[in-house]
Amino acid sequence: MSTLRQAQRAGLPSWLRFVAPVVVGALGVAVWILYVDVLGAAPRMLPSPIAIGNELVLRWPIIGDAIMITATNALVGLLAGSLIAIALAGLAAAIKPIDGMLVPLVAAIAVVPIVALTPILNTMFGASSQFGRQAVAAIAAFVPVFVNVLRGLRQTRPVHRDLLRVSAASPLQEFRVLTLPTALPYLLTGLRIASSVAVIAALVAEYFGGPADGVGTAIATYAKSGRAALAWAFVAGGILIGLVFFLVTSLLERLVSRRSPV
């Protein structure tokens, strides 16, 4: 019965689900080439995808370096923010008053435009330090992980709790055997959302000062100096970071939550 449900949920045959977006993407690029190279009607800051591709290959050494800087900032932020979020969500789930204190606070953080804090953080920690950017990515990643883990820690079903009680399980055993595995898929969902948010935060934070490196800094610099194709090549680099973060966390999420509840 469950296989039937999976087939229905998928809707499209699996080969079509891969081929369809590729076809749409290829069509988009074709229209783009037609617009820029054939019609020659595009604005100056929209170069041909072929020109962007050339720059990407030609300048790969510097683009790769910039990618490493930004990706490292995003990763450090993602890990630090997630670890703090997991610890605080655990506390909030275990201790009622902490829950009452933390949840409104996190709701408040969620509505603050975090990247706007970057200039302040850069001034606090020095313009040559990556810390401000990493801190921004960490705060941005914190919110979705905290919210999802806290929810996950509360998803244990009464029948499972009864089962552990009649088995005379200790609180620690209950946490290990039930609470943690129940919360795990929620953690991974939080991580998947946080990974994209952390990349965006780390990249955009570079627009607000700090060291003169990273993908965001390069995009800003080359856009200002009119080197459109190179600026776009760096944009492609940013997309690449986001894609890798998203794919890795999505894969982890799939591995963990492959068992549907019964």
Binding site: R157, V159, H160, D162, L163, V166, S167, A168, V177, L178, P181, R259, S260, P261, V262
Partner: peptide, 15 residues
């Protein structure tokens, strides 16, 4: 552990 119990829902751990 003098008794065992089964409920209407099987209550198996899916993982």
């Amino acid at each position: 552990q003098d008794y065992g119990i089964a409920f209407q829902q099987a209550g198996l751990l899916p993982w």
